[in-house]
């Protein structure tokens, strides 16, 4: 291993340790904050399907297929153990 490679490896390891040291204790807090923001978006997209009048339904319609993957974890978080929608059978 050349000197340059050695230094590069050392720096990348230091980088990795530092970022673990920075992020690890707050991973949960950040993820929860992210979910809170996501939940509002999910509501905008799926509200109409659940019978809640939604003024932006037309605008968010095309987001539905993109957010389908997240639908399952969202309805679980919202306290529904099974999908509330007949045509989305995620569980």
């Amino acid at each position: 291993m050349t000197k340059k490679q050695f230094i590069r490896r050392f720096l990348s390891q230091a980088q990795e340790l530092a970022s673990e040291f920075y992020t690890a204790p707050y991973r949960g807090t950040m993820a929860k904050a992210g979910q809170d923001e996501d939940d509002i978006l999910m509501l905008f997209v799926f509200a109409e399907l659940m019978g809640i009048p939604n003024p932006v339904a037309y605008q968010t319609l095309e987001l539905q297929p993109l957010l389908l993957e997240r639908f399952h974890s969202w309805h679980r978080r919202m306290g529904m153990s099974h999908s509330p929608l007949d045509h989305i059978r995620c569980c």
């Binding site: 040291f21 690890a24 204790p25």
Partner: peptide, 20 residues
Amino acid sequence: DGIDYVPTNRFVLWGHHFTS
């Protein structure tokens, strides 16, 4: 779950426990 439960390097974890 990639959020709260994440296996972490023990030296990093020691650093956290120690500094907190």
